[in-house]
Design a protein around this nucleic acid. Structure first.
Lengths: 104, 104
DNA sequence: GTTGGTAGTCATGTTTTTTTGACTAATTGA
DNA sequence: TCAATTAGTCAAAAAAACATGACTACCAAC
């Protein structure tokens, strides 16, 4: 058999994939805002000073792909899109909480 | 008074600093190896295929500065240097464990 | 029909992170 | 004294992440 053709990360450190899903310049803050309720693209742009469309769009897409956020088209006027924490996302609160003990 | 001159990260998301201390291409794996006992510079280079001196040196320095690892000169022959998990580093195991529930 | 809000994409440029390869310097064993 | 092992540093290049500005497309109000 072949020895190991998984990306070395996953093989040697299970936490590494999760770490990647959560890190980046805007993801932690988006996560945090999503804890307070559904977030929206333009809303995030306003709530995250210094951010930009491209970066927010990328973060949202990656967090959706990682099944942290769920994207929903809301059939109300004005028609818009909401991003909500998935069950997995919600469960990840424990990860964030475990980090809050280390405020230097 | 001034409103808020902290780096926005720390202000808006406490976990963000810790996330930064743990993320990077090699830090999680170094952390994991350090769980099994003291690690050494050349040893890490051998144990982390694809790594390089510069990156390992930087990771070790940053993890030392973040008080995750403690650097010790071991007065044995051959005289060498060991990096051991600090108390804080050891406590951070809980952070890694909290992530291990999310293996996709 | 023009303005303004929704949610983006695309190409490009800048900045940060990571890698490469050469080099240093002390210690040890033959 | 020569070679190997220890643990790095340094400058430069490559790769990845992030930012900028222009543009698209849909819908609603005026």
């Amino acid at each position: 058999m072949t020895t190991n053709n998984l990306p070395q990360e996953e093989a040697s450190c299970p936490a590494e994939g999760i770490l990647k899903q959560l890190s980046g310049k805007w993801k932690p803050q988006i996560f945090r805002l999503a804890l307070d309720g559904p977030v929206r693209f333009n809303g995030l742009l306003r709530q995250l000073p210094g951010s930009n469309k491209q970066s927010v769009a990328t973060a949202l897409k990656e967090m959706e792909e990682a099944d942290i956020l769920v994207k929903t088209v809301v059939q109300e006027k004005p028609l818009h899109i909401e991003y909500t924490l998935s069950e997995k996302g919600l469960a990840m609160v424990s990860v964030f909480r475990s980090m809050e003990g280390f405020l230097s």
